[in-house]
């Protein structure tokens, strides 16, 4: 019964993943005969590629900003919306809404909002007299990465709220009652009950968001295509450009291998850290 799935999966997932290893040892423009170059691509990537270093830095910054803000906003809104009332259910529905849109739609909507001349954000800023803050959000290499990160957070925070709400609803109400009896303030309740009890959910949210930010492509491609001057270029957009703009297929394959190793390393580290904090496993 499993045979059809296994054959498709082997042929179109496992086999390509293996052949990627082979491509990574080649110099190849995608058209002419590939040339075997051994580990040259890896050496070049790690020692002599300024663009790669810049993009890696971008991606790490992007990941940290998005993970920190998206996780804390998700938890904050979830603590506000844990109970099931008409208002909270309505707000959760609104917050979740962007999740169902495509990255391309979201990217293009925000391209309009950020538009330096006609965009909604700058029009609003100018209307309230803050002309100085009306910046060229996507067109200035100083701000583009942050502008894109902000959109990513707008896009996915609602999903994290819903995941957190599911987690927080599992916390026994007696714990809060006991804390109240002891006279704990709201902050103390959060620190001593909500935060430790929600740690497993936090682990999930952080891991998911991290992977999402290392795989980000569609949104960046729709908004800036990595520009200006590679200021918002992330790893996957770089791989895409290496292959389909620069026609260096072998080198792009090497980059994807690095990407995969990096994602695995980061998720492994996070799992270790969050598990030790959790205290359930050592």
């Amino acid at each position: 019964m499993a045979f059809p799935a296994i054959s498709i999966y082997s042929f179109l997932y496992l086999y390509p993943a293996l052949s990627n290893l082979l491509y990574s040892t080649q110099r190849w423009d995608g058209v002419t005969k590939p040339e075997f170059v051994g580990l040259t691509n890896f050496v070049h990537l790690l020692t002599n590629d300024d663009l790669f270093r810049k993009v890696l830095g971008n991606n790490i910054r992007f990941t940290i900003i998005v993970v920190v803000l998206q996780t804390s906003l998700g938890l904050l809104f979830a603590t506000f919306l844990t109970k099931n009332t008409k208002t909270t259910i309505f707000l959760r529905t609104v917050y979740f809404f962007p999740t169902i849109l495509s990255s391309v739609s979201v990217g293009l909507i925000w391209t309009f909002l950020y538009d330096p001349n006609y965009g909604f954000i700058n029009a609003t800023l100018k209307a309230i007299g803050l002309d100085k803050l009306a910046l060229n959000w996507l067109g200035d290499s100083k701000y583009s990465l942050y502008a894109v990160a902000f959109t990513q957070i707008w896009f996915h925070t609602g999903q994290m709220v819903v995941i957190y709400v599911a987690g927080l609803q599992q916390i026994p109400a007696e714990l809060y009652e006991a804390a109240e009896v002891d006279g704990a303030t709201r902050w103390q309740q959060f620190k001593n009950v909500t935060w430790p009890m929600a740690l497993p959910t936090t682990a999930v949210v952080v891991a998911y968001t991290t992977i999402q930010t290392f795989r980000a492509f569609d949104l960046i491609y729709a908004m800036t295509q990595g520009g200006p001057l590679n200021s918002s270029d992330l790893l996957v957009t770089m791989v895409y450009n290496t292959a389909f703009v620069g026609y260096k297929f072998g080198y792009a394959a090497t980059q994807t291998i690095f990407l995969v190793l990096l994602v695995m390393l980061v998720t492994w580290l996070q799992r270790r850290v969050l598990r030790t904090n959790d205290g359930t496993k050592k």
Partner: peptide, 24 residues
Amino acid sequence: VLFAMFSIGLAIPGQVNIIPIFTL
């Protein structure tokens, strides 16, 4: 074995297949 086989796919992000899928 089946489960392990498909778990590999969860561990390797799909982006690793960009180049090989394109050429294939």
